[in-house]
Design a binder for these strands. Sequence first.
DNA 1: GTCGTTTTGGCAAACGATTGCCATTAAAGT
DNA 2: ACTTTAATGGCAATCGTTTGCCAAAACGAC
Lengths: 347, 347
Amino acid sequence: MAIKKTDVATGQASMKQVADAAGVAVSTVSRALANPGRVNEKTRKRILEAAQTLGYTPNAAARSLRKGRTGAIMIVLPGQLFHGASQVIPLVLAGIDRFLAAHGYNILIANLDRDESSEAHIVNLASNGSVDGAIIISSGIPQTSQKSLTQTGLPIISALHDLSHHGIPSVITNESEVMGKMTELLAQQGHRQFFYVAGPQGMYHERVRLDGIRQGIAQADLPAGSLRKSQGLRPYQEGFQIGVDAADMFLDFAQRPTAVMCCSDDAALSFIAKLTTSGLRVPEDVCVVGFDGSAVGAFVNPSLTTIAQPAEAIGSKVAELLTRQLDGEHVPMVTQLDSAIVRRQSA
Amino acid sequence: MAIKKTDVATGQASMKQVADAAGVAVSTVSRALANPGRVNEKTRKRILEAAQTLGYTPNAAARSLRKGRTGAIMIVLPGQLFHGASQVIPLVLAGIDRFLAAHGYNILIANLDRDESSEAHIVNLASNGSVDGAIIISSGIPQTSQKSLTQTGLPIISALHDLSHHGIPSVITNESEVMGKMTELLAQQGHRQFFYVAGPQGMYHERVRLDGIRQGIAQADLPAGSLRKSQGLRPYQEGFQIGVDAADMFLDFAQRPTAVMCCSDDAALSFIAKLTTSGLRVPEDVCVVGFDGSAVGAFVNPSLTTIAQPAEAIGSKVAELLTRQLDGEHVPMVTQLDSAIVRRQSA
DNA sequence: GTCGTTTTGGCAAACGATTGCCATTAAAGT
DNA sequence: ACTTTAATGGCAATCGTTTGCCAAAACGAC
């Protein structure tokens, strides 16, 4: 603490220094910068010049301490990100980023993983005033043994997962409906036996997509037994292994289904690769459809029929809802956007 | 400002409230929490209990204002992230995250894009005291018309790009050497004409990799004219289009090269797809190798020969160097880690 | 019981910005 | 010229922590 007040070499310039340089009080500097009309245009210009010369940047900690807001939004990711070809999460992020940046918010990515320490970190960020709101992407509510994110009182919106029953406004897609439509389409093409390459059992997406398939099968007047599924022991991040495991199971069937629907494009790609290696032809012998609409799907052989979610739109919608909530508006508990079937060679 | 000091309903509990509840002064609470030995074990226990009951979490803004440090490290991404199958950046991130989390730092992802406003945002974060250090991943130095990141005085480390000539310690791989080795390997297999599917012209990676290929060609006693290359008009993010464009060029050659090396796996995948569609066989007619070691490469047909960078190791190394620099240690300007050739079917 | 030493806890000053309130000055109205 | 009103700038409190310094209390040695 031997540093003198007037020390200029200490990296950043403070408002005090700008004030001294311009010959005014700090309060005037503050107003000149934030409150356009409040200070005489002439002094204001002098202050701006001084700030410019000193390379002044307002200190974030001091500002948010005083204002009680930080202008930052926390993004909670589903964890162990990006281990496949799927681009859904990055695109959602891009949508969020675009909207929030345009509205003067910063985004703060809270986690790259979802282990115990990450959960603690997330809840802590929410509790210690680092952020003004949170967006949960495609996952459940972060919580530690002590406290859950909802208990922090922070405004939260969920993307891709329906968490409305926990009181969290959610932006989701009609994935159930689209899966049903896809099933009907395949049935119309003459398929009678279906196989679903499942993601992690019991997860939200799995429940609703499976529901959709079952409805599609009923709609096509086929027996419920027309659908078989893989076990669903792995998380989405292990998409390629999901496909490989499922292919092993598939190849062992005495009577093989002819239409295969996968929980992700990653799973579909490795599933197809394994089938091809075993001498089966896609789509001649077996039709395979993915899920996600990954860009890579257009550049593989055969190109991949899949379901594309409006990922970027979901992102900006979620961001919009959060900012509206921060402004005290009331937002709908469920917002639904439409996914689309992308028809290519594999089905 | 009509809120009374004693107002408890205001969300977060403050240290003052904990102090009151425990019947001590705030300074004692602070010491009890941070400075184990400094306060009597009995009062300490009472304070911890009070904190627990009130759900106290120290305010981040206040703490960092006082301490002058935030405990956060800024990550600068190369922009428009993750539009292909490459996993390099995410893996580097994972490595960074693991190391920094273990050492008590938070990570703050500064940008998802790299446009003008992102650059400004990055420089601003560095200037306003939000972070203690920065890691630049595979890109140049962020700068606005006013100020560059280096001028903020913030400790910086670079990953994947060699920025040592700007005074920034850098962790890179031997990509030049490996490309040379790969070229020699192909020459040994009998290939005499090479084609390089180029990334954005003039970029660091492009220069060193091309150098490596040229050296490999010289090493194999082949004329410099054995190497042709595509134009390199697109950024890495448009990897699939890079491959498609290059394939168009390739197919137009009167005398086609038989060995193709690509700047990314994305480019290799779409290049192969286009060739296959045009009736060429890989690897029988043309050998193709990628770059990145993407997971998807093992699950396509033919599976992709590629070069895998030690991405996660790079991440943790970069993080380690930064923490050491923050502790006042001197760190080497260049650290090099080894990439490896992954031999699969496409070459 | 006295004196010296070590614990232990509190006071108050920072950190850097924002903002309510007041004093001064300038402009306008009569 | 005198009063009223508006414009302008400064003082000082405040946000929630951390920490140097000091005083009180506890302890030990004699």
